[in-house]
Simulated assay, not measured.
Amino acid sequence: MKILPSLFAGVAALTLCACATAQAESPMTDSTPSAQTDAADALKAFPAATAGQTRHVITLPAQTDESALKVELILGKTQTVDCNRQFFGGRLETRTAEGWGYDYYVLPALGNAASTLMGCPPGSERQAFVTTQEQPLIRYNSRLPVVVYAPSDVEVRYRVWRAGETQTAR
């Protein structure tokens, strides 16, 4: 008769796992007016841009498994370059909206440009997007906007990264 209690325990455990999985995998796809109002309300939590700064807002679409995604923030500007590898200095700071607990990102100033020093052939000049050296990966969260403050002449771009299958080390 010891089999019967362990059978019930196994069925109960499977039922709880199925419920937890179904809740975790259900996508959040709410485009009702109240959801749009919530997004506008969330933006109220962030401070206004200071003089010389622009507030950039990235709204991410809802995904089934957001824990497998990251957002790469890429800041820079387009300028004339040659064959050298070029980049800007500057450190992106993470700050928290007071009273709300939401993170936002600030690039106080774009640092000086730097490059490698290879001899380039004549005519190698071209227009290219030159970035800051630091390009952080942040958590993907479609429920809150990604807010970045940067100098007015800086462009903010982003890229979404998706995790691959888990591998086993040997």
Rank of each mutant, 00 (worst) to 15 (best):
A42P: 00
L43G: 04
K44G: 09
K44H: 10
F46P: 00
P47C: 08
A49D: 06
T50C: 10
A51P: 01
A51W: 03
G52Q: 11
G52I: 10
Q53F: 01
Q53Y: 01
R55I: 00
R55D: 02
V57K: 02
I58G: 03
T59C: 13
L60N: 08
P61C: 08
Q63C: 00
T64L: 11
D65E: 15
E66K: 03
E66C: 10
E66Q: 05
S67T: 06
S67H: 04
A68G: 02
K70Q: 06
V71P: 09
V71Y: 04
E72V: 04
L73M: 05
L75Q: 00
G76P: 11
K77Q: 06
T78S: 10
T78E: 04
Q79C: 13
Q79Y: 11
T80D: 07
V81Y: 04
D82T: 01
D82V: 08
R85T: 11
R85F: 14
R85A: 13
F87M: 03
F87A: 06
F88P: 03
F88R: 11
G90T: 01
R91M: 10
L92Q: 15
L92Y: 15
T94L: 12
T94M: 14
R95T: 03
A97N: 11
E98L: 12
G99Q: 08
Y102R: 09
D103R: 01
D103C: 01
V106P: 07
V106K: 15
L107S: 02
A109N: 00
A113C: 10
A113G: 14
S115I: 01
T116C: 03
T116L: 02
G119A: 11
P122H: 07
G123L: 13
G123N: 15
S124N: 04
E125W: 08
Q127V: 04
Q127C: 08
F129N: 08
V130I: 05
T131M: 11
T132P: 07
T132L: 09
Q133A: 08
E134G: 04
P136C: 07
L137T: 13
R139V: 12
R139S: 15
Y140L: 14
Y140D: 14
Y140E: 14
N141T: 11
S142T: 06
S142V: 01
R143Q: 03
P145L: 15
P145G: 03
V146S: 11
A150Q: 03
P151N: 02
